[in-house]
Amino acid sequence: TELRLDINGREIKVDGADKETLKELLKLAEKNNDEKAIRIIRHLLER
Rank of each mutant, 00 (worst) to 15 (best):
E35M: 12
T1F: 14
A29G: 01
K36S: 10
R42H: 05
L5F: 08
V14C: 02
T1M: 09
N8R: 02
K19W: 05
I38W: 09
E35H: 12
R42W: 08
E30C: 08
K31I: 10
D6C: 15
N32D: 09
A37W: 03
K31F: 12
K13V: 14
D18N: 07
L5Y: 02
K23I: 09
I40N: 02
N33W: 08
G9L: 03
I40A: 05
K19V: 11
R10C: 06
E2I: 11
L28V: 07
R10E: 14
R10K: 14
D18R: 03
E24Y: 15
L45E: 00
R10I: 14
L26F: 06
E11I: 12
L22A: 00
T1P: 14
T21F: 10
G9P: 01
K13G: 05
L25P: 00
E20P: 05
A29D: 00
R4H: 14
R42I: 07
E2Y: 10
R39A: 09
R39E: 08
D18M: 04
V14W: 03
E46A: 14
K19L: 11
L26M: 08
R4C: 10
T1G: 14
D18F: 04
R42N: 05
L22P: 00
E2M: 11
R4P: 10
E24N: 10
T1I: 07
K13A: 11
R39S: 09
L5Q: 03
L25F: 06
A29H: 01
R47E: 10
A17G: 12
E46V: 12
V14Q: 01
A17Y: 07
I7K: 01
D6I: 15
G16V: 15
R39F: 14
I41C: 02
E30I: 13
E20L: 05
N8F: 06
K23S: 09
N8G: 14
E30Y: 13
E46L: 15
E11R: 05
A29V: 07
D15N: 13
D6F: 15
G9R: 01
I41K: 00
E30G: 05
L3K: 05
I12R: 01
R39P: 03
D15W: 09
L26N: 00
R47K: 08
A29F: 06
N32V: 14
K36T: 09
T1Q: 08
L26W: 05
L44C: 04
L28W: 13
K23E: 07
A29E: 00
L22D: 00
L44K: 02
E20F: 10
N33I: 05
H43C: 08
L28H: 06
D15L: 08
L28T: 04
D34R: 01
N32H: 15
I41M: 03
K23N: 07
D34G: 01
K19D: 08
I7L: 09
R39Y: 14
K31S: 11
K13D: 11
T21K: 12
R10F: 13
K27F: 12
K36R: 10
D15S: 07
R42F: 08
E46N: 14
D6G: 04
I41N: 00
K19G: 06
E46K: 14
A37N: 06
A37H: 03
N33G: 11
A29M: 04
A37G: 03
N32F: 15
K23V: 07
R39G: 06
L44G: 01
